[in-house]
Simulated scan of single mutants.
Amino acid sequence: MTQEQYAQRNDVQTSEKPHIYKVGIYGWRKRCLYFFLLLLMILILINLALTIWILKVMNFTIDGMGHLRITQKGLELEGDSEFLKPLYAKEIQSRPGSPLFLQSSRNVSINILDGRNMAVTQLVAGSSGVKACSKLLEVKSNSGKLLFSADDQEVVVGADRLRVPGAEGAVFSRSVETPHVRAEPFKELRLESPTRSLIMEAPKGVHVVAEAGDIQATCRNDMRLESKDGQIMLDASKIKLLKLPKGQASPTGSKQAVFEVCVCPNGKLFLSQAGTGSTCQISTSVCL
């Protein structure tokens, strides 16, 4: 390239206007950006206000939330609390000196599970009553004395006195074993079997005592007093045998009101008018 051509090219480049390149966002893009920034600031302010409002309403503190407090011993609830799902806890107790209330609209169930998640002990308190299912049920006093115990084999009442205040008393469908049966003071004791027999047995004897009243034994059919190895004693100042059949008068013809008690071979008792000797043989027709 000659010098003249180079000079002409430089003159053409200097005669053209220089290009200006603008850097940044302008026009409608800039307005949209500012709008989104303003909307984002409004959302941030609303979110912050809602967060502060939730913290205020739920009573969030450093120790917990609402009625729930986190202590060194665990969680502490104040007032009434409602659980919509199962609650798992190692221990539930009330404040010292305050009662613990468990309230439900249907029932309250307490289940004890084994290693296979099978219920081995269950306590259900509902509107129909309280139901307990367990192998052994024990009730003890504060001193540790056994008051009541029940299992599949027997029921044990460990209290010093078992009191049944019902008007009908206590009903036992099978045998009862007890060392002592006593009525309350100034009340009568009745042992009754309306439709079956009443049997009292003891290997060393049955002792019936009424220190301030009478003893009355009534039955519909036969009453039997039996002693296999001993004797039956009737010890009283006066013994009355009412409604005994009377035998025939003695041939002596005496009209004295003195009778002797005769015993038939079958055990039947009857009265025979007394004479100088026994008159039981004369009235043996009563034994037939």
Rank of each mutant, 00 (worst) to 15 (best):
L242S: 14
A49Q: 05
L45V: 12
L33Q: 02
N266D: 13
F60V: 07
I46Y: 05
I25P: 00
I25D: 10
S81D: 05
K17S: 13
N107R: 13
I62Y: 10
D160F: 13
R220T: 15
I70K: 07
L68V: 08
R161N: 10
D160S: 15
T51R: 10
D11N: 14
A202R: 02
L191I: 13
A125F: 04
Y21S: 12
I282W: 00
Q256I: 02
D11F: 07
S105T: 01
E226G: 04
P165V: 03
M233R: 03
A210W: 02
F270C: 05
A89S: 15
L102P: 02
V156M: 04
D114Y: 01
V108C: 11
R116Y: 06
S278N: 03
G144D: 15
L162E: 00
Q93I: 12
N221A: 02
R116M: 12
A210N: 05
P185M: 06
S143V: 08
F270V: 06
K145L: 11
I239S: 01
D63V: 07
A257S: 03
N47S: 12
G97M: 13
V120E: 02
L38A: 10
E192P: 03
I239W: 05
I215P: 10
K131H: 08
F35Y: 06
L271T: 02
S98I: 09
K240T: 15
L38I: 06
P96L: 14
N266T: 10
G213T: 08
T279M: 15
R69D: 14
Q3C: 01
T71R: 04
S109E: 00
T252M: 07
L137Q: 01
N266V: 07
S127P: 01
Q216K: 09
E82C: 09
K85Q: 02
K228Y: 08
V23R: 07
I52C: 04
E78S: 14
G129W: 01
V108G: 05
N142K: 11
G166K: 11
A212M: 07
R174M: 13
Q248G: 02
G205W: 04
K17E: 12
E78V: 11
I92C: 06
S98Q: 14
K140Y: 11
Q281E: 11
L68C: 09
K135M: 10
L45P: 03
F83Y: 12
P179L: 05
K17N: 12
G275H: 04
E4K: 15
V108W: 04
V120N: 00
E211P: 03
V57W: 06
L241F: 13
L77R: 02
Q93A: 11
K56R: 13
M200A: 09
T218Q: 08
T61R: 08
L147I: 03
C264D: 04
S237K: 15
H207V: 11
Y34G: 05
